[in-house]
Design a protein around this nucleic acid. Structure first.
Length: 457
RNA sequence: GUGGAUGUAGCUCAGCUGGUAGAGCGCGGGAUUGUGGUUCCCGAUGUCGCGGGUUCAAACCCCGUCUUCCACCCCA
């Protein structure tokens, strides 16, 4: 015996994915990859570990606290990546000369956050990102959003709505309420983001303590957002952007007004471009804020509308970050991206019954005895060369046991190759769904097997 | 970081006011040695999360600790 027995365990917030959960997961990843590639994105991989300074200060105070950080054996301060966006920014700056702009890349990989685990929330989880670096146009924004909606469409998700907003609209409105300092503006925007969860009173309190905003001004500000949100619910009235335009025109002037109007116009352009291809899937929602510091332009979140999964939170979000890449180099390169939370979306799909039950190995080849091994393997190879997924019984024993294992593995067909069959260059295919057996020559085996697999069980 | 729960067989759980553990599912074996999944028979499940305390006696009461989960915060 070697040493004391170890307890087999995983770290809090970290998970193993056994085949039963891995199969639908991988199927989902493949669909997402296909959509990304169909939209011109190319794969990128980056290290899990980055220098701490690469990641620090990009996400805001809360984000910095959630960084998984430590010192490596060489005394370097390092951190596990918190998202896939900052590593992309680093890559674009670092490999600027090797990349052709605009650069479209997708990245499906785990990220780590030292968060407190909860339902739908883990310390290691998978993100699926698609970003365009080097283009600051409404078309780039729209392309990224259409990619995201394309993924949802490919996955069969119907009830999802993209909520679109623009950072500058938020800043303009907050500024119009009398908050001038950027830090306090961000604090206000964070407070607005909680509109869904907290009563106005509480939000006003938060604005008072976090941003030093007078209670009256805070309530007025909140009222503005509540009204703005009501707009798209009401029919026959002006739309969100017209309403916003009207409000900012009465409250702002000069450069601030220009900026706000430009943001509203840009958002509306993007919304219309996307709306034309995905009717009803995108709304201008002035109340969404996004917590991360690096966003500079359009921002968005996707929520599932089905009541069964409404509590699951945002499943796909992102925005434009024109200043981030510039933090790593002399050149300012604008970028926009979208990030999809695989774990959450998968959980939602399972909840909605949109995940097909995974079928295991379809064909199971039994082995009568040691002297029949070669014949069994020959048959297995024959079927595999024909493209079928085939498992050969690797344990042996009574035929009954082997068939039992075949059933437990979820196989649809069992192949029997005894002495009689070998002598006649034949094999018996047993359909485990109905128990029927078919004796066929080896030359017809693959075709018959395929035919049986194609029939419903 | 704050608050609330949870932890008993591989899994889902039961175990009344303290008297050294149970069910279902699953698992193993068997019911004419070339036939599974259905049925029948038999069988094993276990430091009752871990450590300490109270008691003649603790799965049950007390303290601590870890785990998982829920809410808040933030987010995917």
């Amino acid at each position: 015996m070697a040493g004391p027995m170890l307890e087999a365990k995983t770290l809090k917030g970290f998970r193993d994915f056994l085949p039963d959960s891995m199969v639908p997961r991988q199927a989902m990843i493949r669909k997402i990859e296909a959509v990304f590639e169909r939209h011109g994105f190319q794969p990128l991989m980056t290290p899990a570990l980055e220098y701490l300074e690469t990641l620090m200060g990009k996400y805001g105070e809360e984000g910095d606290k959630l960084l998984y950080r430590f010192e490596d054996h060489g005394g370097r301060q390092v951190a596990l990546r918190y998202d896939l966006t900052v590593p992309l920014a680093r890559v674009v700056a670092q490999h600027r000369a090797e990349l052709q702009l605009p650069f479209r890349r997708y990245h499906i990989a785990p990220v780590w956050r030292a968060d407190k685990p909860q339902r739908g929330r883990f310390r290691e989880f998978m993100q699926c990102d698609a970003d365009i670096a080097g283009a600051n146009t409404a078309i780039a924004d729209a392309e990224v959003l259409m990619t995201g909606l394309g993924v949802l469409e490919a996955l069969g998700v119907d009830g999802a709505v993209l909520h679109l907003n623009h950072r500058d609209v938020l800043f303009a409105v907050v500024q119009a309420a009398g908050v001038v300092e950027p830090q306090r503006q961000i604090a206000c925007i964070r407070a607005i983001d909680k509109l869904d969860k907290l009563p106005p009173e509480r939000i006003a309190d938060e604005m008072a303590t976090e941003a030093g905003l007078a209670r009256e001004a805070a309530l007025e500000l909140i009222d503005f957002f509540v009204t703005a949100r009501g707009i798209h619910a009401a029919e026959g009235t002006e739309n969100e952007s017209d309403y916003l335009k009207r409000i900012v025109e009465t409250r702002l002037q000069g450069e601030a007004l220009e900026r706000a109007l430009a943001a509203i116009a840009r958002t509306e352009t993007v919304r219309q471009l996307v709306e034309a291809q995905f009717p009803g899937k995108i709304h201008f929602d002035v109340s969404i804020a996004r917590g991360l510091d690096y966003y500079t332009g359009v921002i968005y979140e996707t929520r599932l509308t089905d009541a069964r999964v409404a509590g699951i939170g945002a499943v796909m979000s992102g925005g434009r970050y024109d200043g981030l890449i510039g933090m790593f180099g002399k050149e300012q390169i604008p970028a926009v991206g979208i990030s999809l939370g695989l774990d959450r979306l998968l959980a939602a799909l399972q909840e909605l019954g949109l995940v097909a039950r995974s079928h295991a190995v379809p064909v199971y080849v039994t082995v009568f005895g040691p002297q029949d091994a070669a014949a069994a393997l020959e048959v297995a190879q024959l079927l595999r060369r024909a493209g079928l997924q085939v498992e050969v019984d690797a344990v042996g024993g009574k035929l009954g046991k082997q068939l039992e294992r075949a059933s437990k593995r979820g196989a649809r067909l069992a192949i029997l190759v005894g002495a009689d069959e070998q002598a006649a260059r034949q094999a018996v295919i047993k359909d485990l769904a109905d128990g029927q057996q078919h004796r066929v020559g080896l030359d017809a085996l693959a075709a018959t097997a395929r035919q049986l697999l194609d029939t419903a069980d």
